[in-house]
């Protein structure tokens, strides 16, 4: 049986802006993926726990609060510690180019800025497994 790509969309920290996360969740569903949305206000520990139990292929963080330089590295570190080094970490939000570049050197696979076409996100994810 062919298993669809499974994606965890997570909102870490206190930032409550979940419009983008929900739109992306819907779009990935429509692109044929199985999407788990964590809901708001997740600690990095909760996110990694969910990624582990659900055995997702991709973890995607949505951060608009400016705390991305704290939260991405923390999630990545916990993923590595939990044996999820082979799971892709991507993300989106209000993240300046300079920070995005730095995050990519730390193992974040891709950062999508505001206004990204959701089909581009779906294609990118599919490309990871092609």
């Amino acid at each position: 049986m062919k298993k669809p790509i499974k994606v965890l969309i997570a909102k870490p920290g206190l930032d409550g802006h979940d419009r983008g996360a929900k739109v992306v969740a819907n779009a990935l569903r429509d692109a044929g993926m199985e999407v788990i949305y964590t809901g708001l206000h997740q600690t990095p520990e909760m996110i990694v726990e969910a990624a582990l139990q659900e055995d997702v292929d991709v973890v995607s963080l949505s951060i608009l609060s400016g705390a991305h330089m704290t939260l991405f590295p923390r999630v990545k570190q916990l993923m590595d510690q939990s044996g999820l080094g082979d799971v892709y970490l991507i993300g989106g939000g209000i993240i300046p180019e300079k920070d995005a570049k730095q995050l990519k050197t730390m193992g974040v696979k891709e950062i999508f800025g505001p206004g990204t076409d959701t089909t581009a996100i779906a294609e990118f994810i599919r490309g990871l497994f092609a």
């Binding site: 920290g13 206190l14 206000h41 600690t43 609060s65 400016g66 705390a67 330089m69 704290t70 939260l71």
Partner: peptide, 11 residues
């Protein structure tokens, strides 16, 4: 607070 890390004084 543990949720405050990285967010203090940000927004």
């Amino acid at each position: 607070d543990r949720f405050a890390e990285g967010e203090v004084g940000k927004c």
